[in-house]
Computed example of a mutant assay.
Amino acid sequence: MNAPRTLSRSRHDRIIAGVMGGIARRFGWSATLTRVLYVVLSIVSAGFPGILVYLILWLLIPEEGN
């Protein structure tokens, strides 16, 4: 049986901090599509402070291999 994938920031699939790359890897999604959807959601929704949430995720999600 496969071990469950843990959530961690990607060291290889990163643009800024690897947050979206890590989330995409964890759930088996496309990293590019995950980034695009996150940006669109951040722009369209006034109730979703995208930059603040990204910074919090950057602080809370450990980097891959740590």
Rank of each mutant, 00 (worst) to 15 (best):
M1L: 14
M1D: 13
M1P: 13
M1I: 14
M1E: 14
N2R: 14
N2T: 07
A3I: 07
P4G: 12
T6D: 00
T6W: 03
T6H: 00
T6A: 01
T6K: 02
L7E: 10
L7Y: 05
L7F: 03
L7G: 10
L7T: 07
R9F: 12
R9W: 06
R9S: 01
R9Q: 01
S10R: 02
S10M: 05
R11Q: 03
R11P: 03
H12W: 08
H12T: 10
H12I: 02
D13C: 06
D13R: 02
D13L: 08
R14A: 01
R14F: 02
R14Q: 09
R14K: 04
I16V: 15
A17K: 02
G18M: 06
G18A: 02
G18P: 05
G18F: 09
V19G: 00
M20R: 09
M20L: 15
M20Q: 11
M20P: 07
M20D: 09
G22Y: 06
G22H: 01
I23L: 13
A24I: 05
R26H: 09
G28H: 08
G28E: 09
G28K: 05
G28C: 09
W29F: 13
W29H: 04
S30Y: 12
S30K: 12
S30R: 12
S30V: 08
S30G: 09
S30L: 07
A31I: 02
A31V: 15
A31P: 12
A31C: 11
T32Y: 09
T32M: 11
T34A: 15
T34C: 15
R35A: 04
R35G: 00
R35P: 04
R35W: 10
R35L: 02
R35V: 01
V36N: 13
V36I: 15
L37C: 01
L37V: 05
L37H: 03
Y38F: 15
Y38A: 04
Y38R: 00
V39T: 09
V40S: 12
L41P: 12
S42F: 04
I43M: 01
I43A: 06
I43P: 06
V44D: 06
V44W: 09
S45D: 11
S45N: 07
S45K: 05
S45R: 08
S45C: 12
A46W: 07
A46I: 06
G47H: 12
G47D: 15
G47E: 14
F48C: 07
F48L: 07
P49I: 06
P49M: 13
P49Y: 11
P49F: 10
G50I: 14
G50H: 08
G50A: 08
I51R: 09
I51D: 10
L52F: 15
L52T: 14
L52Y: 15
V53F: 12
Y54L: 09
I56N: 09
I56F: 11
I56A: 03
L57A: 15
L57E: 11
W58S: 08
W58G: 02
W58D: 11
W58L: 11
L59C: 08
L59D: 01
L59V: 11
L60H: 10
L60F: 14
I61L: 00
I61G: 08
I61T: 04
I61A: 06
P62I: 01
E63K: 03
E63S: 03
E64G: 04
E64N: 00
G65H: 03
